[in-house]
Computed example of a mutant assay.
Amino acid sequence: MRRLGISVYPNHSEVEEVKAYIELASKYNFKRIFTCLLSVEGNKEKVIKEFKEIIAVAKDNEMEVIADVSPQLFEELGISYTDLSFFKEIGANGIRLDNGFTGNEESVMTFNPQGLKIELNVSNGTKYLENILSYQANPSNLYGCHNFYPHKYTGLGYDHFIATSKQYKEQGIKTAAFVSSKTATIGPWPVSEGLCTLEMHRELPIVTQAKHLWATELIDDVIIGNAFASEEELKALSEIDPYQLILNCELVEEIPETEQKIVLEEPHYNRGDVSDYVIRSTQSRVKYSGHEFPAFNTPAIKKGDILIESSLYARYAGELQVARLPMENSGRTNVVGWVVEEEVFLLDLIKPWQKFKFHQKRINLIKVNTSVA
């Protein structure tokens, strides 16, 4: 199951504010929480009491809580890797090892009698997981979670992200990665330039970030790295389909009713015999066979344009396509809209036979261009 999550930082926020944020996220079906226990500064009893209070609220809202820890924290609190009862006592469902041990210790942890999940750092790109599994770990108690990066330009590159995520998915391990809120400012460190996993996401809308992570089919849980995201962002994320890519689009003002219905209401999937130039959704030409599709907007075609063939294309009339590359227009292809600029790159992830939909983001007030390329 793919889930949404939030992050909370009790050491940097008021407890009541954190509780209210958890309640709000739960309202929008968020199911997991990341929190940071890398160091316990100040009054340890007070810090632990606050963590317990916050985790109790999460539990009341059926949210899983994973706490970020390190070997240094184990030393600070006198915790042994053979006895994780402390984390169970504060209410956590699992711990994330920001820095690991040697492999054998993690393997032992996966058999903890408290049933805690042991989450590993995916981003490092070493043979860490392979090493732990070689010690006959219990894989059902293992998670993988990427890092987040508060400093601009330090986030993961896309190729590295794909390669490291595959290491975990190929072993059947549940994975997570972080997206960044535009309104949130709180994280575990003083630097606050966003808290995303992928550097390419730092300036993108939060919904686009989440769509991209799920579209890779390598990430199960999408977690907002910084706090506190706005209610508008939480709501928008809750409305994403984690299993089907829905592309935000704009339509030309003068689009005919049938063409609009084809774009927004008909089911779409990319044909198996794929083209480099277009994503082809062909069932509409079958359903609307015999309908007259006039040529009304036939400019040159750019990547991301949504196309419907006119009746001048005979048997192709009514077929929907999405341009993957710029193309000339013969004068027979209508440009009926376009994928919004920030989501055009998602077209590169659509595979043969993959199902997808369009959502009209807003009405475009630009008149159509009837010139022929």
Results as ranks from 00 to 15, higher is better:
S180E: 04
E233H: 12
I206R: 07
A56V: 00
Q72F: 10
N61L: 11
K287W: 01
I206M: 07
L237C: 08
T154A: 06
L77Y: 09
I79Q: 07
Y81R: 10
Y269I: 02
Y277I: 02
I223F: 04
N99S: 13
V252P: 00
E75I: 13
E105R: 14
S192Q: 15
M327C: 15
Q354N: 07
L198S: 05
L346C: 04
L247G: 06
D348Y: 09
G42T: 06
P190M: 03
D83K: 12
N364K: 09
V207F: 03
I366W: 00
V108H: 02
V122K: 00
K169C: 02
G290H: 13
T102D: 12
K169F: 01
S330R: 08
I54S: 03
N297M: 02
N270H: 15
L237Q: 07
A56T: 14
L237P: 09
N270V: 01
Q136H: 14
N138S: 00
L24N: 11
P299C: 10
L320Y: 02
K302M: 02
K152V: 05
Q244V: 15
T370W: 00
L4S: 05
L204W: 06
L237A: 06
I279L: 15
G157Y: 08
F293K: 11
D68I: 13
R271N: 10
F293Q: 09
F296L: 02
V47Y: 12
E292I: 14
L320R: 03
G103C: 10
V372R: 13
P299S: 11
P242M: 06
K117E: 00
H359N: 13
E343A: 04
D241K: 13
L129G: 05
F86M: 11
R362P: 00
S26D: 06
L347K: 11
N124T: 13
L195N: 11
G91F: 11
I255G: 04
L198F: 07
F178W: 08
E254D: 15
F111H: 15
K152R: 15
F34P: 09
P150I: 11
V40W: 00
K211V: 08
F356N: 04
G155H: 10
Y81D: 06
A184L: 03
P190T: 11
I240K: 06
P352C: 06
N124R: 13
A229F: 01
N329E: 07
V122F: 00
E203A: 13
V339G: 02
K235H: 11
T35D: 03
G225T: 06
K31N: 13
V122Y: 00
A227Q: 11
V191E: 09
E41D: 12
E309R: 14
E203M: 12
V108W: 01
M200T: 14
N99L: 14
I162P: 12
E292W: 10
A317G: 03
F356G: 03
L213T: 11
T185D: 00
L312F: 12
G155P: 10
L24W: 05
N270D: 03
I22L: 08
S26E: 02
Y168V: 10
G304M: 07
W338I: 01
L195D: 05
G194T: 04
P71H: 04
T164Y: 14
K52E: 10
G103K: 10
Q136K: 15
R280N: 04
V336A: 02
G42L: 04
I173T: 08
V47R: 15
G304C: 08
N138W: 01
T197D: 06
E341M: 05
Y128G: 08
